[in-house]
Computed example of a mutant assay.
Amino acid sequence: MTDAADSANNQPPGYVPPSVWTWDQPSGGTWASINRPISGATHEAALPVGDHPLQLYSMGTPNGQKVTIMLEELLAAGHAGAEYDAWLIDIGKGDQFGSGFVGVNPNSKIPALMDHSTTPPTRLFESGSILFYLAEKFGAFLPTDHHKRAETMNWLMWQMGSAPFVGGGFGHFYAYAPFKIEYAINRYAMEAKRQLHVLDTQLARHQFVAGDDYTIADMAIWPWYGALVLGDAYRGDGYDAQQFLGAGEYENVQRWAEQIAAREPVKRGRIVNRTAEGKLRERHAASDFDRIGAAAGERV
């Protein structure tokens, strides 16, 4: 416990942790409304269901992009059964706490997927679980060779365990916290750079993260780390994570990130369930991208 005499050095000055934490103080910051210390639904809200067997409920955050990229890659590879409806779950408005969504994912986090091609329908949550399920279902982007498959799963699990330090750690304190805390930013910047170095070292030896094959490991890692080195993450008025972390020094990650970004299914998948101009709020057919591309005056 911090001694009261030292509390002037705390952030905010004078703060001393109580003996027992209680939920009577707002967490503050950009995403404060998505945090609560209890689980479960806050309101009744049924989920919509479209025409396709695969129904995705998500938002175009890095975790959401993993799944839409995978689905678009499957369709591009000729797996017609991967057609899907993607419904926006606006986490800023609390859609993830609706009863229907909680029924699919009791953890109230995007993405969540329902596969209506099975009897009864199969519910899926956690992005890594969804990627693995789809890879097995369609026999794609997950090697069958024992060692290659194990390596792919190693890196998929690496991403699942590492990215919270980049997002909830570095990204939160660097970009979203209500005030800047030097200790927190330094701690998580160090870890973010360590992770980038891990990835850079691996990519110095291989074309893709898990070896010579493009796999679900790349699809999981790219929306987080690829976006970071390309300058598409934690960048705004007064902050630029790409510059702050010296992302340009990770040349192998940069090469890989640009290679993945150039893939047409990735271009499509990364704009689904996003509300900004030129993005796709919902996706129900491949032709939805044609309308976005025409409006933007360029190929998506």
Rank of each mutant, 00 (worst) to 15 (best):
F170W: 05
T201C: 03
T152S: 08
D200E: 04
R149C: 10
Y188R: 06
F165A: 09
G169S: 11
G168Y: 00
A140F: 05
A192Q: 05
D213R: 10
F179N: 07
R194A: 09
R187E: 08
H197L: 14
A140V: 07
I185Q: 09
P178H: 00
A140E: 12
A192S: 15
M160F: 06
D212I: 00
E151Q: 14
T215E: 05
I185F: 07
A210D: 03
T144L: 14
F208L: 02
Y176S: 09
H172V: 08
T201E: 13
Y188A: 08
P164M: 09
L156M: 12
G211I: 05
P164G: 11
L196H: 08
V198S: 12
A192V: 13
D145A: 14
I185V: 15
F170M: 11
I181Q: 11
G167W: 05
A192Y: 06
Y174G: 07
E191Q: 15
T152E: 03
H146T: 14
V198H: 13
V198Q: 12
A150K: 06
H147Q: 14
N186C: 00
H172G: 03
L203H: 03
R187V: 08
P143K: 07
A210W: 03
N186L: 03
A217H: 06
P178G: 04
K148C: 04
R149I: 01
Y174I: 06
P164H: 10
T201N: 10
A184I: 01
W158P: 01
W158G: 02
P178I: 02
Y214I: 05
V166D: 00
Q202W: 03
M153Q: 13
L196K: 09
L199R: 07
D213Q: 15
A210H: 05
T144G: 14
R187Q: 13
N186G: 11
L142V: 11
P178V: 01
L156A: 04
F208P: 03
A175Y: 08
H146E: 14
Q159H: 13
M153Y: 10
T144C: 00
M153S: 00
D200C: 07
N186S: 14
P164C: 10
R194T: 13
L156K: 04
D145E: 14
P143F: 09
F179A: 11
H147G: 02
L142P: 11
T215D: 10
Y214P: 07
T201D: 11
G171L: 04
H197S: 15
A150V: 12
A163P: 00
Q195D: 13
G161R: 09
L196C: 07
W155R: 04
H146Y: 09
A150P: 01
L203A: 02
I181E: 08
G211A: 09
Y183R: 13
M160K: 05
L156D: 02
L156H: 03
V166H: 15
Y188Q: 08
